[in-house]
């Protein structure tokens, strides 16, 4: 499984890496730090030509250049990408954001818990569900 993390805050990205390291999956994680790079990565444009399309996207909403909502729309309107589960992981509790994400066919909305142990167990549950419980289409 390959995961793409779209997160502009290096501290947040570091924490998510630690979370995946905790469950032994650190090597599956790629990180990009703005919305445009995310779209380029997924479409393998420019210097992302050699990247593999990920099996799962973890997407922050507050991003420079192109916000998470737009990235989500890009993914879900691209026939080559729309099958990829997109998990929005954000600090926003706003009902507006939650609604918008599901209306744009986001697969899941998660709020980052403020406590480290809660955050780690959220990562563990993501892995339990998307790796061991759900079945995903074969990689392209």
């Amino acid at each position: 499984m390959r995961i793409l993390l779209v997160e502009d805050n290096p501290a947040e990205a570091c924490l998510t890496r630690e979370g995946f390291a905790d469950v032994g999956l650190i090597h599956e994680l790629r990180v990009v730090d703005d919305g445009e790079k995310a779209t380029a990565f997924l479409r393998r444009e420019g210097n992302c030509a050699n990247e593999e399309v990920p099996d799962l996207v973890l997407l922050d909403l507050n991003l420079p250049k192109k916000c998470g909502h737009e990235v989500l729309k890009d993914i879900k309107s691209d026939p080559d990408l729309l099958h990829i589960p997109v998990l929005v992981v954000t600090n926003s509790h706003a009902m507006d954001d939650i609604e918008k994400v599901y209306r744009s066919n986001g697969n899941c909305y998660l709020v980052k818990p403020p406590d480290l142990n809660d955050f780690f167990s959220m990562v563990r549950r993501i892995v339990d569900f998307w790796w061991d419980t759900a079945r995903l289409p074969p990689a392209v």
Binding site: N9, A11, E12, L15, K112, P114, D115, L116, N117, F119
Partner: peptide, 9 residues
């Protein structure tokens, strides 16, 4: 969240 999480880490 960053402060809390990293001191906890």
């Amino acid at each position: 969240r960053m402060v809390t999480s990293f001191v906890q880490l």
